[in-house]
Design a protein around this nucleic acid. Structure first.
Length: 472
RNA sequence: GGCCCCAUCGUCUAGCGGUCAGGACACCGCCCUCUCAAGGCGGAGACGGGGGUUCAAUUCCCCCUGGGGUCACCA
């Protein structure tokens, strides 16, 4: 059975890169009827951020990337948190020691820094410590690490399913630390041990891992385990071209959520970073992607994360994919955030219907539709001018509107059109002052629809207020 | 810098020896129109360079160039 996993480390905000890699892991597992696992790589207690794990898991659920096994859902291969598996790593490091695939090293961080400066990297000097002596020092409690004993000379072959065979000279592979002096494993040891124990068959991860893959291959060989398939995906890039990072762009999925990006749109957009549908369709669901997925449709160039296109995609979902009811639910938190309330569910939906083609992020909705929900909105400078210019017309029009039985389009449209004609004005010269008066701005949905939604009372009140404003 | 990966419009990409090099975002124009959008139609815009292989290269191979990654007791 195909088993994939993502192995995020809880060191900060939930990263879009994690989401991106998660999509491909999820899709490949589902495509094969396999399992998708989440494993938390919390072996760095320096960088550990409380709450980060919960936020990463929440992000995955938010994006619809539900996993079969994970730290909160459990599963047959738990625990799924590396800090809870320390004994395991110690035991396997021990095995490596016994098989002469690893050795104990006693240099202090300061010494290592000096060696690095002088030799350009660790030179493997602790290999020369007689085994008995090393064991004795360890038993005496001397702090030390366990390092991989890279066989040299030699070559290590890494098969990447997307790039083919990559050969490494073992002289280029350092004797990396496997078990730190605090008893925690490094990524290299923990990831190999866990992937094996958890039955991971396909390792899909970021390209940043490609050059350390020979280390992992060596470990699989040392343990005598099957080597999984590797797929190294290109890294998300910032507009400059460098890998997307906190320094070069917004990396937190929470940031995009707060900006009013829909999970479906983010997921869809991220999928497009490397994957394309056979028919060229750009808007598609997760399960449609599972259906159509194949590795030869994945491109290897580092994709630049483009906020503009994400926003377009988001708008596409807002106006074409979500139902009106769904949209209403999505928009509510942003209404509340903006301090706006809505008189009824029906009213909110009617406004949404008018505004749908006019906003692209959820956050924009309260800003652009504020006049539908409260009276004391600001008048833009241009709107004020328009009101002043059309004040006389507005006074007349107000009287006529006030005589209408109600503000359905059947009444307002003929009246306004007739009014314009009688006044000898072009329709727009009537519309713009009216628009400015009742919304405070010059760009809004269609007039008749708006009048109907706002209602007679509100409209008359606003015209009066607008006139008062320019008269003062 | 060493090693590794990558390379089609500004951006995301299709292409898998013979195509007018296609689509999407952004941009420009037109249509629709009470404004703004949305939508429709049209436009501009790319195969980094040099060698090969081949009747024929965007496509296959090599070199260069460019970009990226990585060189921790971080992942």
């Amino acid at each position: 059975m195909v088993t994939t996993r993502i192995a995020p480390s809880p060191t900060g905000d939930p990263h879009v890169g994690t989401a991106y890699i998660a999509i491909f892991n999820y899709v490949w597992a589902k495509k094969n009827g396999g399992r998708f696992i989440v494993r938390i790589e919390d072996t760095d207690r320096q960088r550990y951020v409380p709450g980060a794990e919960e936020r990463i898991l929440a992000m995955l659920h938010w994006l619809g990337l539900d996993y079969d096994e994970g730290p909160d859902t459990g599963g047959p291969h738990g625990p799924y948190r590396q800090s809870e598996r320390l004994e395991l790593y110690r035991r396997y490091a021990e095995i490596l020691l016994e098989r002469d695939w690893a050795y104990r090293a006693f240099e202090t961080p300061e010494e290592l820094e000096r060696i690095r400066r002088e030799k350009g990297g660790y030179d493997g000097r602790a290999r020369n410590i007689p085994k008995a002596e090393a064991e004795a020092r360890a038993r005496a409690g001397e702090p030390h690490v366990i390092r991989l004993k890279v066989p040299r000379p030699g070559t290590i072959e890494v098969h990447d399913a997307l790039r083919g065979l990559v050969r490494y000279d073992s002289a280029e592979i350092p004797d990396v630390v496997l078990l730190k002096s605090d008893g925690f494993p490094t990524y290299h040891l923990a990831n190999v041990v866990d992937d094996h124990l958890m039955g991971v068959t396909d390792v899909i991860r970021g390209e940043e891992w490609l050059v350390s893959t020979p280390i992992h291959v060596l470990l699989y060989q040392a343990f005598g385990w099957d080597v999984p398939k590797f797929y190294h995906l290109p890294l998300l890039r910032a507009p400059g071209g460098a890998k997307l990072s906190k320094r070069t762009g917004h990396t937190s999925v929470d940031h995009y959520r707060e900006e009013g990006i829909l999970p479906e749109a983010l997921r869809n957009y991220l999928s497009l970073m490397g994957f394309s549908m056979p028919d060229g369709r750009e808007v598609f669901t997760l399960s449609e992607m599972v259906e159509a997925f194949s590795w030869d449709r994945v491109s290897l160039g580092g994709p630049v994360f483009d906020w503009e296109k994400l926003v377009w995609m988001n708008g596409k979902y807002i106006r074409e994919v979500l139902t009106l009811d769904e949209l209403a639910e999505r928009v509510k938190p942003f209404m509340t955030e903006a301090g706006l309330t809505w008189p009824s569910e029906d009213y909110l939906r009617r406004v949404l219907e008018l505004m749908r083609p006019r906003f692209e992020t959820l956050k924009e909705f309260p800003q652009k539709a504020i006049y539908f929900f409260q009276d004391d909105f600001d008048y833009e400078a241009k709107a004020q001018k328009e009101i002043a210019k059309g004040a006389a017309l507005l006074r007349e029009l107000k009287e006529k509107l006030a005589n209408l039985p109600d503000f359905s389009q059947a009444y307002t449209e003929p009246l306004i059109k007739a009014f314009a004609e009688e006044s000898g004005k072009k329709l727009r010269h009537v519309m713009q002052p009216l628009r400015a008066a009742i919304t405070g701005r010059l760009a809004t949905p269609g007039m008749y629809e708006m009048l109907e939604v706002l209602g007679k009372e509100t409209v008359i009140r606003r015209i009066e207020r607008a006139l008062a404003l320019v008269e003062s």
